[in-house]
Amino acid sequence: MTSTHTPLPAPQTLVGASLAQHEPLVAATRGQAIESIHYGSAVVLDPQGNVLRHRGDRQAKFYPRSALKPLFAVGLLRAELELTDEQLALASASHSGSQRHQDVARSTLSDAGLRVEDLGNSTDLPYGTAEREAWLAAGGTATQLAQNCSGKHAALLALCKLKGWDLPGYLTDGHPLLELLRDTVQELTGEKITQQSTDGCGTPVYLLSLAGLARGFARLALAAPGSEEARVAAAMRSYPELVAGEGRDVTALMRSIPGAIAKDGFEGIQAVALTDGTALAVKIADGGDRARMPITAALLAEHTTVPGELLSSPALGGGQPVGLLAAL
């Protein structure tokens, strides 16, 4: 059977035009040797939005993946969607798939008169390790509600129901929902979107600079009380366990740094903003998730107190620490 899909470009045709100038950010040691190195880029903005520090490539653009969710949530509120703070935190989340996470996503659908079957995101097992093991032990299988983006998709559908927009086609190009999301991201980041693709769950994802992503998070941290940006920030601060989950580093970061707003994204993305508007964004070149938090924590430590467990993690040999994963 002949495929109708447009052929994808081979990687070697893309590298020359898009290879970012990353630098070594994180190293894993074992004994007295460096065993592995993760390259990447990072940008730190001061409270006025100026580049305070950068590592690697400050000009390159990357897909922020799930770090876009809090910005999407601002757009939903601007369009007059009513959500509880728990529902809003979950709409901004890559949740672990616990029963509480799934219940909050279900409540967003129920409040809008929608069903779980209306969800258009991909199916998956719970993202959190403990949650996934418990789910499988109970006989669970991959579902849309367990997938880490179900809170976002439930909120997207709720807005479509409110506005009378097409529900089955809410992820289709040209849908007014997707126009709203794009416009919101452009406004919050201060960058014109010139290229986009599709995230793993089915929503759009846009190429942005790290400075643009950090700028968007600073807008949340500095938002005037009563604004939609402030509401998203308040929900995330009030429910960090819904933004990620127990045992997750993003939840630990928000609990340990008062007022911090943090969101990770697949392929080594992290964004954080502090209460004074200092903001940063990180991209790990190889997409390695383990390198994301050590460099983020090291950069944050120049501005605030950061717990040691976020700065580094041990490499084990025979069950004992014999090395370290930490920022260079």
Rank of each mutant, 00 (worst) to 15 (best):
L300G: 00
K192R: 14
T189P: 00
P314Q: 13
G31P: 12
N121D: 13
T198L: 10
F72G: 00
W135V: 02
T305I: 12
L316K: 12
T143E: 14
T129S: 11
G97L: 03
A33Y: 15
A17E: 12
S98M: 06
N121W: 09
L145C: 07
A326L: 09
P204S: 08
K263C: 08
L208M: 08
Y63T: 09
P9W: 06
R53N: 08
R53P: 00
D183Y: 02
A230E: 07
H153P: 08
A273P: 00
A223D: 05
K69R: 11
E179K: 03
L324N: 09
E191P: 00
G97I: 11
Q102A: 04
V306K: 07
A17C: 03
L83C: 11
D111N: 14
G113C: 04
E35K: 12
T184Y: 02
A67N: 06
Q270V: 13
T143L: 06
R290K: 09
E86S: 09
A224R: 12
L274G: 01
L14I: 11
L222W: 00
E35D: 15
G56T: 12
G113D: 04
L88T: 07
L109D: 05
G16V: 05
H38P: 00
A158G: 08
T172R: 14
S110W: 03
E35H: 12
P204N: 04
L325M: 11
D199W: 03
E246Q: 15
T84S: 15
G190H: 00
Q186D: 05
S66Y: 04
L156V: 02
V272E: 01
K163T: 11
A137V: 02
R78M: 05
P204W: 02
L167D: 02
R53F: 10
L299K: 00
V116S: 09
H153R: 04
A10W: 06
A42E: 02
R58T: 09
P176Q: 06
R132L: 09
Q186C: 12
V306N: 05
G247E: 07
Y127T: 07
A155F: 06
P126T: 06
G259E: 10
S66D: 02
L76R: 05
G259C: 08
R30S: 11
Q147H: 15
V26F: 05
L242C: 03
S41M: 02
D85H: 11
T123W: 05
T198Q: 09
G75I: 01
S312R: 15
P168Q: 06
Q32K: 14
G277C: 06
N50R: 14
A327M: 03
W135N: 00
L213N: 05
S107D: 13
E131I: 07
T6W: 13
S312K: 13
K61W: 01
A252M: 15
K161L: 06
V232A: 09
D276C: 07
G31S: 12
T305R: 13
L178C: 08
A142F: 10
R132I: 07
A89H: 08
N148A: 13
E187N: 05
K163I: 11
E229L: 03
L222T: 10
L280K: 01
S227Q: 05
G287N: 04
A301Q: 10
L242T: 07
G318T: 08
F266T: 13
Y170K: 10
Q59S: 11
G151E: 02
